[in-house]
Amino acid sequence: MFWKLRLPLMLTFIVGLVPIVTFFLTERVWGVAFVRDRVEQYMVIITGFALLLGVVNVVQGNIRKIERRKPGWPFAVSLLLGLFVMGAFGILSAARVGPFQSILTAPDGSDTPFYWMTRHLFNPLQAAMFSLLAFYVASAAFRAFRVRNVEATILLTAAFIVMLGRTPLGEYVFSWLPNGETFLPWVTEWIMAVPNAAAQRGIIIGAALGAAALSLRVILGIERSYLGIREK
């Protein structure tokens, strides 16, 4: 019980207080700067290991899929191939072995293998995947924006003005008026800067207070789900 539950909760309380206490104490207080810098450095390293933990999960899941010949298993092979090749290039680049001198360009300006893969595989795939959403966002908007009530009308109008105001067409819509070219872009900017900012600010304040309350629950050991402990 002590090792599996109480010790992790004690560690959570002690380590959780470190950034809070060091925030309120000046560097002149003995040991504050030392503790803060050391803990910061340690956490950066642990974060590195934690991020790689996700990779292990993906590898495990996909190897299992291939072993059991589940539907779509050849795609698991392409996933693992991409992961291992890119990952190996990344590790070799970190170690600066042979042509793998960096994750960016080589000193002579040529592409390192990792950078070549980033430019010609990662970047096109990422941009294409996100740009694909442009089509689906449009069809989703058609379904969602059917004017049914006041709220939907406000949402539709704001979205329409912002989209139109950021295109050259928006400048021509009111061009027949004196200084009409600037009207719609001005309305767009006003929506973004005033009512949109007010809504976003309300959301930010509410979410930040909620996040701070959750942080306090974790530090005080009330919230334990991150340790895999379910409340009865």
């Binding site: 890119m86 990952g87 990344g90 970190a94």
Partner: peptide, 23 residues
Amino acid sequence: FAESLFAGVSLGYYIGIVSTNTL
């Protein structure tokens, strides 16, 4: 194929970034 390759390459990319910039 492209979707699963993207998932794999993205993870590989993060391995490279984390190794080089952090560890």
